[in-house]
Design a binder for these strands. Structure first.
Lengths: 223, 223
DNA sequence: GCGAAGTTGAGGGAACTCCTCCACTTCGTG
DNA sequence: CACGAAGTGGAGGAGTTCCCTCAACTTCGC
């Protein structure tokens, strides 16, 4: 499934056992990355799959390739969430649910979180999928602002920063209280409603898209 | 100043040049830790001080000791902020300003941020200073709640988590926009005001002090 | 049953860090 | 001023961790 999307210049098919192992590797990578993030080594993934390291390297030239193979379609999942949000009845609920559902995915999958917040993992397909997300998010934001429920000085780039904040809560508290992040997303959402702002304007302007890009290149997973 | 607070069993005084170097080391550590955090090696600090590594190790058995020597009094600074907050006129302003001023210190000094958010740096004196902070914070919170301005379901441990969130914003955005964190603290503060609540209660309970302790032992600086 | 394809895991090599050691320098007292 | 004690420097040992290779071995499938 993830497989045939690559250019394909009629590569000879893998031997049956090799194909089986390839699947084992991907399954293992999904497990390991989702639990331990990209800090995990290919050695870890190999052992978790019950295979030798060499086998993994024979199939995937580098960690990058594995990531690429694994996460492109998961990002499209989030794209689907966003599109769905555009058709949802109440504009505020659409906005809030998009944040909530995305954060919930982040909480379940450390690897996904890292791909989303950093520009340092995966190239090509991952980058494309992310690029497709931006205009969608902008629409959801605009709709919520137009409806007068989301504060007017909110910007689409704020979404990314909010995910960074919630991401750090997830990172550190999920062993102790896996759902605690919902509390702080709750505070943030309350703070984002138009009828709650006390100060007319938030201090400082939001990041422009270019600066956000830079920030996301700096972003590094913890340890 | 930081100096004579240690037990002192009449250690013979340092030779004049050695004492000078000791000061250089501490100054250098202040610079380097504040900019690069505790990721910095003692080698870095030595070179930045224009000294050899050996000299640093002769004076401070380990990084821990240096940290201890440096940060205990900075934490007391924050304690002073908190006490000051207790006498400030408006209870909400006291609360909000405490968060703001503390975050501003964090933004200026990566080392301080790391000591505050983690239980893994510095022992003894640092731990003491932190312990003294807790009841103060609790009072400030209680006063703001009693005045009806801070939402009733806020807890003192939320302060630490908020600093983690803001800390991650600082960490990643300060090269691009050093003051951007104020924007998100602004959102949080608006979300914390009691009036015009949308949801009656935040989802999930706050951490208890014990769990927070655990979380802070897990906390690690980035990279 | 044979050659091509696949597998294995010890270990090479690179990047870091912490810290030690001892030949050398400097201090300051007698 | 000279001499012993105190202090200094920084190459390098020891420990990690990680990425990836390769040569000996196994399995597949025609």
């Amino acid at each position: 499934m993830t497989r045939d999307t690559v250019p394909v210049a009629t590569v000879r098919p893998l031997r049956r056992d090799a194909e089986l192992n390839r699947r084992k590797i991907i399954a293992s990578a999904r497990d390991v990355f989702s639990e331990r993030g990209f800090g995990a080594t290919l050695d870890d993934i190999a052992h978790h799959a019950g295979l030798g390291v060499g086998t993994v390297y024979r199939r995937f030239p580098s960690k990058e390739h594995l990531v690429e193979a694994m996460f492109a379609d998961r990002l499209d999942e989030i794209g689907a969430l966003a599109e769905q949000a555009l058709t949802e009845g109440d504009p505020w609920d659409a906005f809030a649910n998009l944040l909530l559902r995305t954060a919930a995915l982040h909480a379940d999958d450390r690897g996904l979180r890292e791909v989303m917040l950093s520009n340092n993992f995966g190239r090509e397909r991952v980058a494309e999928s992310k690029a497709r997300l931006i205009p969608l998010a902008m629409k959801v934001v605009q709709r919520a602002k137009d409806s007068g429920q989301l504060r007017a000085d909110f910007e689409a780039t704020d979404i990314a920063i909010i995910h960074m904040m919630i991401g750090s809560v997830i990172e550190y508290t999920q062993d102790v209280r896996p759902e605690l992040w919902r509390r702080y997303l709750g505070v943030l959402l309350d703070g984002l409603r138009a009828d709650r702002c006390h100060e007319a304007e938030l201090p400082r302007k939001a990041l422009d898209v270019q600066s956000l890009e830079t920030v996301m290149c700096t972003w590094q997973p913890h340890h």
